[in-house]
Design a protein around this nucleic acid. Structure first.
Lengths: 144, 144
DNA sequence: CTTCATGCAAAACATTTGCAAAAAG
DNA sequence: CTTTTTGCAAATGTTTTGCATGAAG
């Protein structure tokens, strides 16, 4: 716990951000959550830092995105979702619950990367290729 | 124009929807726009059908999505975006302007499709694979 | 000290809802 | 006629803003 806070302070500094309890709480929450919307981050983080405000969560998330500590994700939910993992990876996106799961598939990534290696797209600066496997989380369930 | 209305009436009927001036205006707008957020659809459609309401645009868009006449798209803009093309294709997504362009790449689609042919993903029912080329529209411009 | 981050409350958006009136088939 | 669909206005949910206070380096 104290370990983690120290750890996070280093990370914040490395990204050129001042270390504050709020930022530590938010980043710590994101590490636990992996992917989350702003309101869930707020719930999770404010459980530990009771003075935390929704507006601050938005500020902090935005500053994290600016420096590249978090990534914003696309959703079909009209809500903001964050991803704690900023390397290039695929996602499983559940259309029902609007939740994300990382899906690592290096072979696929390589294949796609190769495909675009020497391609230029007219009038477009490509930053990254985002592959989403869209579907539904299967109910883990009592069978039949 | 009259031609188009007749055309759209047929399409609506084929999708099991009653034909109304509002639905015709919205679908017609979507055909012109290709991809658009609800407010842009409203602007475009209400220019021709002045009685049209924002709430109706949302209703109509939702009913179109239900029957598969339009597709909802993911965005990082906290807004609803629609796509008039429902076949499986890639998109260029501009992070700056939050606009979409279709990007057809059958070779890529085939490759990805093959890759997933015999794959099962634990606890997930895959509906479709969504590939977004994320970046920025290049300013068409006066050089240098 | 000086600058930047936070809390608070209000504002700004985007979307949804409930219900009466109007239109479609 | 009967069933949907629409318009309106109000409600909801999410994100942003402005500004005074407080904390970080």
């Amino acid at each position: 716990m104290i370990e983690e806070a120290i750890d996070i302070k280093k990370i914040l500094r490395r990204y050129g951000l001042k270390s504050t309890p709020q930022r530590i709480a938010v980043y710590s929450a994101m590490r636990e959550l992996g992917h989350a919307s702003a309101d869930v981050v707020f719930q999770q983080a404010s459980a530990k830092l009771t003075t935390l405000t929704v507006a601050t969560v938005y500020n902090v998330l935005e500053s994290f995105v600016q420096v590249g500590l978090l990534q914003r994700r696309m959703s079909s939910n009209n809500k903001m979702y964050m991803d704690v993992n900023t390397y290039n990876h695929c996602h499983l996106y559940c259309e029902e619950t609007h939740t994300f799961r990382d899906y690592d598939d290096p072979e696929l990534m390589l294949m796609i990367h190769d495909h675009f290696r020497n391609k230029r797209i007219r009038g477009f600066d490509l930053h990254r290729i985002d592959v989403q496997l869209v579907g539904k989380n299967r109910r883990v369930g009592r069978s039949k």
